[in-house]
Simulated scan of single mutants.
Amino acid sequence: MLPQAYRMRDGDEFRRTIRRGASASTDALVSHVALTDGSGVRVGLVVGKKVGNAVVRNRVKRRIRHAVSPELAALPDGSRVVFRALAPAAVRHDLAADAVDCLRRAVRRSTAKRV
């Protein structure tokens, strides 16, 4: 589980990150990264009902959190990250690799422009 300081909870923060952040995707995940003037790194997960029932959705969230938690320390201060899981994420065996790959590509695409 991510420490509380890393969790994104505000709906407006999710919307700003998704709308203004750089994105990268695979067939199972989409990641959005925005740089803000805030401090710390915040991560949010969006896993809809198309992914599966509650058990499957929670499993997908745990797998994503576990994969990206070591990567968070390397992100610039003020980073906001949102992962959106798509339906194939439920059966994806290499979801962890997809999550890390999406995160790294989105970070490279993000610019110095602050949200």
Rank of each mutant, 00 (worst) to 15 (best):
residue 2 L to F: 14
residue 2 L to D: 04
residue 2 L to V: 04
residue 3 P to W: 04
residue 4 Q to D: 14
residue 4 Q to A: 15
residue 5 A to L: 14
residue 6 Y to S: 08
residue 7 R to V: 13
residue 8 M to Y: 09
residue 8 M to C: 09
residue 9 R to C: 14
residue 9 R to N: 08
residue 10 D to V: 05
residue 10 D to F: 03
residue 10 D to Q: 15
residue 10 D to I: 12
residue 11 G to N: 13
residue 14 F to S: 02
residue 15 R to S: 14
residue 15 R to H: 14
residue 16 R to V: 13
residue 17 T to G: 10
residue 18 I to A: 07
residue 19 R to A: 12
residue 22 A to R: 07
residue 22 A to C: 03
residue 23 S to A: 15
residue 25 S to Q: 15
residue 25 S to R: 13
residue 25 S to Y: 07
residue 25 S to I: 11
residue 26 T to H: 06
residue 26 T to D: 07
residue 27 D to V: 15
residue 29 L to W: 00
residue 30 V to Q: 05
residue 31 S to N: 08
residue 32 H to L: 03
residue 33 V to W: 00
residue 34 A to H: 11
residue 35 L to K: 01
residue 36 T to K: 02
residue 37 D to Y: 10
residue 37 D to G: 15
residue 39 S to D: 12
residue 40 G to M: 06
residue 42 R to K: 11
residue 42 R to C: 02
residue 42 R to D: 03
residue 43 V to K: 05
residue 43 V to A: 01
residue 43 V to G: 08
residue 43 V to M: 06
residue 44 G to C: 08
residue 44 G to V: 02
residue 45 L to I: 09
residue 46 V to E: 00
residue 48 G to P: 10
residue 48 G to F: 05
residue 49 K to P: 08
residue 50 K to L: 06
residue 50 K to C: 07
residue 50 K to M: 01
residue 50 K to A: 06
residue 51 V to L: 00
residue 53 N to A: 08
residue 54 A to K: 00
residue 54 A to P: 04
residue 55 V to K: 12
residue 55 V to H: 11
residue 56 V to H: 00
residue 59 R to S: 10
residue 60 V to S: 00
residue 61 K to A: 08
residue 61 K to S: 11
residue 62 R to N: 09
residue 63 R to L: 12
residue 63 R to P: 10
residue 64 I to M: 02
residue 64 I to F: 06
residue 64 I to C: 13
residue 65 R to D: 07
residue 66 H to E: 13
residue 67 A to V: 05
residue 70 P to A: 01
residue 70 P to G: 07
residue 71 E to S: 15
residue 72 L to Y: 08
residue 73 A to P: 04
residue 75 L to I: 03
residue 77 D to F: 05
residue 79 S to R: 00
residue 80 R to Q: 08
residue 82 V to Q: 00
residue 83 F to E: 00
residue 84 R to I: 01
residue 85 A to T: 06
residue 86 L to C: 03
residue 86 L to F: 09
residue 86 L to P: 09
residue 87 A to N: 06
residue 87 A to R: 11
residue 88 P to C: 12
residue 89 A to G: 07
residue 90 A to W: 05
residue 91 V to P: 01
residue 91 V to W: 13
residue 91 V to I: 10
residue 93 H to D: 15
residue 94 D to P: 10
residue 95 L to P: 05
residue 95 L to Y: 02
residue 96 A to K: 05
residue 96 A to E: 12
residue 99 A to E: 06
residue 100 V to A: 12
residue 100 V to R: 05
residue 101 D to W: 15
residue 101 D to N: 12
residue 101 D to I: 08
residue 102 C to T: 10
residue 104 R to G: 02
residue 104 R to H: 10
residue 105 R to N: 08
residue 105 R to V: 06
residue 108 R to G: 12
residue 109 R to N: 03
residue 109 R to I: 03
residue 111 T to I: 07
residue 112 A to L: 14
